[in-house]
Simulated scan of single mutants.
Amino acid sequence: MTSFVPVPTGSDHWTWGSSQLFESSTPSDNDSEFNPERSDLSYFVAEIAMRKMLQRCTWSTSTLAQGSHVYAPIVAAELERQLDEWLQLLPQQLSFRPSSATRSRPGCDPSSAHVEFLRTQYYAFKASIYWPAVYEALTAGEANSDLLYHCAKFFTSFAEFVPSAVAAIAVCKPNLWTLCTSVFTISMAALAGVTEPCLVVVVPREAIHGLELASKAFDGTAEISPSLADMGAILKESIQRYHHSWM
């Protein structure tokens, strides 16, 4: 079994029904410097690196002698360092600022779909780093100031993740399942966190807005996948129950 596999490029015949793998993947006539093969190669290298990080470790905990797990801030810090190093090493055509507020709208940029998907993975990974802090608070029913600080980072990452995921869903049709299931899983985790009384003080308003946006991400999925439609219905119902309980 060979260790080297040629990387697919935009010049290959990749199709998704009648649509291209990524929308807006054809360079404009005035974009003479765009190199599809170089852009695709850079994207796949970045994607492989991200997946290797995810496979290596996304659970920032330490195991105690009795076998129980506790949140480990030092592990979380190292994972975030590796993630930010990955971001800094992205080539210019795939680079993005770590803030959805400054994200440009996808469209004429041939690599915008690639950028949106990588950005979404960035925030999904970041949320997974800090989820164990929230889980520990949920399990204990309390959190000290240090744990609250890291829980706040989870909610901030979630608030950035959802707009990125929604933007990616609009342009990355082949990744629809991955994106929607990520929205469902991370949003349900966030919903568990925002309903915990000891964490209310660190839940930003943007995270609550993110829940509303997440529920809309599944609109139109019934025609594509009944299972995705079911996820969307479960998420919407859970969010509605949350609002009723806090009114």
Results as ranks from 00 to 15, higher is better:
Val162Leu: 00
Pro27Trp: 08
Ser215Tyr: 01
Ile169Gln: 06
Pro132Cys: 01
Asp146Gln: 14
Cys151Tyr: 01
Val115Gly: 00
Ala49Gly: 07
Met1Arg: 07
Asp219Trp: 13
Thr185Phe: 10
Pro8Phe: 05
Ser11Asn: 10
Val200Tyr: 08
Ala214Ser: 04
Ile129Ser: 02
Ser157Cys: 12
Tyr130Pro: 00
His150Tyr: 06
Asp31Gly: 10
Ser60Arg: 00
Ala192Gly: 05
Phe34Gly: 02
Pro163Asn: 05
Ala159Arg: 02
Gln121Val: 06
Arg56Tyr: 10
Leu79Gly: 05
Leu179Thr: 01
Phe161Leu: 08
Ser42Thr: 02
Cys108Glu: 15
Phe96Asp: 00
His114Ala: 11
Thr156Gln: 09
Ser104Pro: 03
Val75Ser: 11
Asp40Leu: 07
Leu235Ser: 01
Asp29Gly: 11
Leu54Ile: 08
Val201Thr: 11
Glu23Pro: 06
Arg205Ala: 10
Phe158Glu: 00
Lys173Met: 06
Leu213Gly: 06
Glu212Gln: 10
Arg51Gly: 11
Glu23His: 14
Gln82Glu: 06
Phe34Lys: 02
Ser68Trp: 09
Glu37Lys: 14
Cys198Thr: 08
Ala189His: 10
Thr102Trp: 04
Ile74His: 15
Leu191Cys: 04
Glu47His: 14
Glu223Thr: 15
Val70Pro: 05
Ala49Ile: 04
Tyr43Gly: 00
Asp219Thr: 07
Leu191Val: 11
Ala127Ser: 13
Gln240Thr: 15
Thr63Met: 13
Met188His: 13
Gln20Lys: 10
Trp246Asp: 09
Tyr71Lys: 02
Phe22Arg: 04
His69Ile: 13
Gly220Cys: 09
Tyr130Phe: 03
Leu228Ile: 05
Gly141Leu: 04
Ser164Gln: 03
Ser128Cys: 11
